[in-house]
Amino acid sequence: MPAISLITLAVASVPRARAFYEALGMRTSPLGNESVAFLDAGGVVLSLYGREALAGDTGLTDARPGGITLALNVERAEQVGERLADAVAAGARTLKEPREMPWGGVTAYFVDPDGHPWEITWVAEFPLTEDGRIVLAMGDDEDGGGTTA
Rank of each mutant, 00 (worst) to 15 (best):
residue 101 M to V: 09
residue 43 G to H: 03
residue 85 A to H: 11
residue 3 A to F: 12
residue 108 A to R: 08
residue 16 R to C: 02
residue 6 L to F: 08
residue 112 D to I: 01
residue 37 A to C: 02
residue 94 T to D: 04
residue 119 E to N: 07
residue 22 E to S: 01
residue 121 T to K: 09
residue 56 G to V: 08
residue 128 L to D: 00
residue 118 W to Q: 12
residue 102 P to T: 01
residue 8 T to E: 11
residue 114 D to L: 00
residue 41 A to M: 05
residue 49 Y to L: 11
residue 2 P to T: 11
residue 18 R to M: 01
residue 62 D to Y: 02
residue 61 T to M: 03
residue 129 T to P: 08
residue 139 G to P: 11
residue 104 G to S: 05
residue 122 W to A: 00
residue 135 V to E: 15
residue 26 M to G: 00
residue 91 G to M: 11
residue 53 A to G: 13
residue 30 P to W: 04
residue 22 E to N: 09
residue 124 A to G: 06
residue 22 E to R: 14
residue 136 L to G: 04
residue 70 L to I: 13
residue 25 G to H: 03
residue 104 G to D: 02
residue 6 L to G: 02
residue 139 G to H: 10
residue 106 V to Q: 14
residue 149 A to R: 12
residue 82 E to N: 08
residue 92 A to K: 03
residue 15 P to G: 06
residue 110 F to L: 07
residue 115 G to N: 09
residue 38 F to H: 07
residue 20 F to N: 04
residue 55 A to W: 07
residue 109 Y to L: 12
residue 2 P to K: 09
residue 20 F to G: 06
residue 10 A to R: 08
residue 34 E to D: 15
residue 96 K to D: 13
residue 91 G to D: 10
residue 20 F to M: 07
residue 131 D to E: 15
residue 77 A to E: 15
residue 126 F to Y: 15
residue 125 E to K: 13
residue 59 G to M: 11
residue 143 D to H: 13
residue 61 T to F: 03
residue 18 R to Y: 01
residue 58 T to F: 04
residue 93 R to K: 09
residue 127 P to V: 01
residue 64 R to G: 15
residue 148 T to L: 03
residue 135 V to H: 09
residue 13 S to V: 05
residue 2 P to G: 13
residue 95 L to P: 11
residue 132 G to S: 06
residue 66 G to E: 01
residue 73 N to A: 13
residue 120 I to K: 04
residue 4 I to H: 08
residue 126 F to S: 05
residue 136 L to S: 10
residue 93 R to L: 11
residue 140 D to P: 05
residue 123 V to P: 06
residue 86 D to Y: 02
residue 145 G to C: 02
residue 86 D to F: 05
residue 30 P to C: 02
residue 7 I to L: 15
residue 132 G to N: 11
residue 91 G to N: 10
residue 132 G to I: 00
residue 53 A to T: 14
residue 21 Y to M: 00
residue 39 L to F: 00
residue 90 A to Q: 10
residue 46 L to S: 04
residue 124 A to K: 15
residue 52 E to T: 13
residue 102 P to H: 00
residue 20 F to S: 05
residue 143 D to V: 07
residue 139 G to K: 12
residue 129 T to D: 06
residue 93 R to I: 10
residue 146 G to T: 12
residue 21 Y to Q: 02
residue 137 A to W: 11
residue 5 S to V: 15
residue 52 E to C: 03
residue 125 E to D: 13
residue 137 A to V: 07
residue 19 A to Y: 03
residue 42 G to F: 03
residue 78 E to C: 00
residue 78 E to S: 06
residue 39 L to M: 00
residue 85 A to S: 14
residue 75 E to Q: 04
residue 89 A to D: 14
residue 72 L to F: 12
residue 57 D to C: 07
residue 49 Y to H: 15
residue 75 E to L: 00
residue 76 R to T: 11
residue 147 T to V: 15
residue 119 E to C: 06
residue 45 V to G: 07
residue 128 L to K: 05
residue 46 L to M: 11
residue 105 G to L: 07
residue 121 T to E: 08
residue 121 T to Y: 12
residue 104 G to K: 05
